[in-house]
């Protein structure tokens, strides 16, 4: 009985866990977009909004340099999400800068899924 239960649980988790880890969820990406992360060095809390803004169809502004960042929404900027190397580079940099760590594959997939809907 115990053994059976263990097998059932194990097979269930192998089926479900990868799905929850890898399925891209635009809603989770949207929530992650505005989530603020306090900074260890005492600087103001950061989120994606800090530089990209809340409305992805509008341009943003880099918080340090003031440089204008073209809109992230593919609906107004067809260049977005077209270059996998560029996506990976910026997700790596921006997760480290904002969250203080690299994002998981799932978090990145969620952000991409969210941006795609914009």
């Amino acid at each position: 009985m115990k053994r059976q239960l263990a097998i059932v649980l194990l097979s269930a988790s192998t089926l479900i866990l990868p799905a929850t880890l890898w399925a891209a969820d635009p809603a989770a990406g949207a929530a992650g977009w505005t989530k603020e992360y306090p900074q260890a060095d005492g600087s103001a809390a950061r989120s994606c909004v800090t530089c990209h803004g809340r409305d992805l169809t509008q341009p943003g502004r880099q918080a340090n340099t003031g440089k204008v960042i073209e809109p992230m929404a593919p609906s107004v900027n067809s260049q977005r999400l077209t270059d996998p190397a560029k996506i990976e580079k910026w997700l790596t940099r921006n997760c480290r800068w904002t969250l203080g760590r690299e994002c998981t594959a799932g978090e990145k997939a969620d952000f991409i899924a969210y941006i795609k809907t914009q």
Binding site: N64, T65, A85, K89, T92, R93, N94, R96, W97
Partner: peptide, 12 residues
């Protein structure tokens, strides 16, 4: 590059 004047500018 990972701490480039306050920004992360990491490159491949």
């Amino acid at each position: 590059l990972a701490n480039h004047y306050g920004d992360d500018a990491s490159l491949s």
